[in-house]
Every structure is written in C-alpha cells, then in structure tokens.
Amino acid sequence: MKKLPELEIIEEAISWRKFKKKVVLATVISTWGSSPFEIGTKMIINEDGNFFGSVSGGCVETNVIQESIKLLKNKHTFKKLDFDVSDENAWDIGLACGGSISVYIEKIN
C-alpha cells in the first residue's frame, strides 16, 4: 500500500528548492531479503545536511546523507548506492536487518 508521506516528502523538496536550497532526492530502487521499506520509498537531503523521510529503518541513512552532500559538491548529477550484508562497510553502517538495498541519489534542479 503506497503511503502518503511520500507526497509530504515531495512537497518539502519543492519548498526547499523555493528557498534556493540544493536538494538531493534518494529513492529505494531495489531491495533483497528482509529490508524494511518498500521500493520507491524516498528521502530528501539538502546542502545543510538537513533531511526528511527515510530509506531504511535507520540503517543506511547516515551514509546516504554523507553521499548526498558529496554529490552536491561535485559535478555528477546522480549515483547508485548499494548496501549489502556481504559488503564489509555494511556492517559498519549497520544493516542489521540482514537484507540488501540499493538507493539511487540524484540532484533536484
């Protein structure tokens, strides 16, 4: 069942852009195993490191925020982030659910 908070997140992104903030949209594009959130779940991040929404139960958000701020500083417009339990980093980030998840981050312009 598609949850409406997604619309709140999109509206917030639009309002951030109105205030001339640089914004990144993060979208869950694939999940495997026991990932908590469904495909399409969204989160937005701005240049100040503020964020709204979530892409997991708190497992990978910190990394997504860091990568998003990095993206805002370089010339690329998008990046795919893969988090997996078999990935050494994933344990650091703490994907304790035992699943894997791909998050696509992109600049909103």
């Binding site: 992104a13 852009r17 949209l25």
Partner: peptide, 25 residues
C-alpha cells in the same frame, strides 16, 4: 531530476488517474 516532475507527481496524485515514475539509471 527536474523539480517539474515532482510538481507533476503532486498534481497527478490529486487527480484520480494512475501513472508511473520512470528513471533511466
């Protein structure tokens, strides 16, 4: 992604039609 697409999602959601968002990764 263009902000216009996000604005369109909000607009389309209030009409009753179904649609899909596509991304070329």
């Amino acid at each position: 992604m263009k902000i216009e697409i996000l604005q369109k999602i909000i607009k389309k959601k209030s009409s009753k039609k179904r649609f899909a968002l596509l991304k070329n990764l």
